[in-house]
């Protein structure tokens, strides 16, 4: 069979390609691009000065600060436990491994509202530790600690999920070589493992961070909605919107949308970096393999 007719038989006809591309792009336009445009349009509907004025409200600034604080606070926990989980799962064989992987995914499956309720039942006034906490004047629910705890819950899977397949694909050889050459465990980790996984780790951190900054349901249940105290930026958006302060709500929303765009750009850059590294690996390795055979 000649090349053109084979090509015609293994690709869709041109009219179909154009139709499908049109449908796909229209779907993405109405569901993604238009909402994104609308956030900024609505935020600027009252002009730049009203926009900036809305952002300069002390409560808005406090909400921005609180959102960033929580996101930064949970990051080291996610990195440490994510790397630990991925190390155990990707480099060793043990019983119950697939169960452990499923359990790590659990926070993705549970409704954020249920997550918030769970911690309310533990630390709330009528909760398991409620009487003890109030006797010792420790506030967890309707205060910052509770909001941090639910964010830790919600963001737990991201880093491990990103690292497990990556570290499984990389195998054990490099680390085993480092150990057999006399490196200590920490030396091996800093010199071999971390350089190998740094982009995957960063990718996981970016995703976890986006979720931490944007979480609404779980944080809403345990925050108590105290203005200027336990209001994160997403909760602040809700309050302003319910007060019919559209410009204020969309001004705060536009900050979150900007952070989302930063997340997308950072994520794309890391993806390109990871792809480039695997490509150079692919082109270097066969050459080396040939050389070693000679």
């Amino acid at each position: 069979m000649s090349a053109p007719s084979l090509r015609m038989a293994t690709a869709e006809p041109r009219w179909l390609r154009w139709t499908l591309t049109g449908i796909g792009l229209a779907f993405l336009f109405f569901f993604l691009a238009l909402p994104l445009l609308a956030v900024f349009y609505e935020a600027l509907a009252g002009g730049w000065s009203a926009y900036l004025q809305a952002l300069k409200e002390p409560e808005t600034l406090h909400a921005v600060g609180l959102t960033l604080f929580i996101a930064l606070f949970v990051m080291p926990f996610n990195v440490m436990v994510g790397v630990a989980a991925a190390w155990a799962i990707a480099k060793f064989e043990f019983r119950g491994k697939s169960l452990l992987i499923t359990l790590i995914d659990l926070p993705f499956a549970v409704s954020p509202v249920v997550v918030g309720l769970v911690f309310l039942l533990i630390f709330g006034a009528q909760g398991i530790f409620g009487p003890w906490l109030s006797a010792h004047d420790v506030k967890i629910v309707f205060a910052l600690p509770g909001m941090v705890i639910v964010t830790l819950f919600i963001t737990f899977p991201f880093v491990a999920r990103e690292l497990i397949p990556l570290m499984q694909a990389q195998g054990r050889e490099e680390e085993e070589a480092a150990i057999s050459l006399g490196a200590t465990g920490w030396n091996m980790f800093w010199r071999v493992t971390l350089p190998n996984i740094k982009w995957g780790l960063l990718y996981g951190v970016i995703l976890a961070n986006a979720r931490a900054m944007g979480e609404f349901g779980a944080v809403s249940v345990v925050s108590g909605h105290i203005r200027g105290e336990t209001n994160t930026l997403p909760l602040h958006v809700e309050i302003l919107y319910n007060e019919y302060n559209a410009v204020g709500a969309f001004a705060s929303a536009s900050v979150l949308a900007l952070l989302a765009l930063v997340t997308l750009v950072a994520k794309t850059l890391v993806e390109w970096q990871m792809r480039r590294e695997t490509e150079t690996l692919d082109t270097v390795l066969p050459a080396e393999a040939v050389r070693s055979k000679e």
Binding site: L28, M213, V237
Partner: peptide
Amino acid sequence: SLVDLPFALPTAVAGITL
């Protein structure tokens, strides 16, 4: 890259915008 927007955009923002 835009396909991941719903993962990055906080749900409250999506809610009021939609």
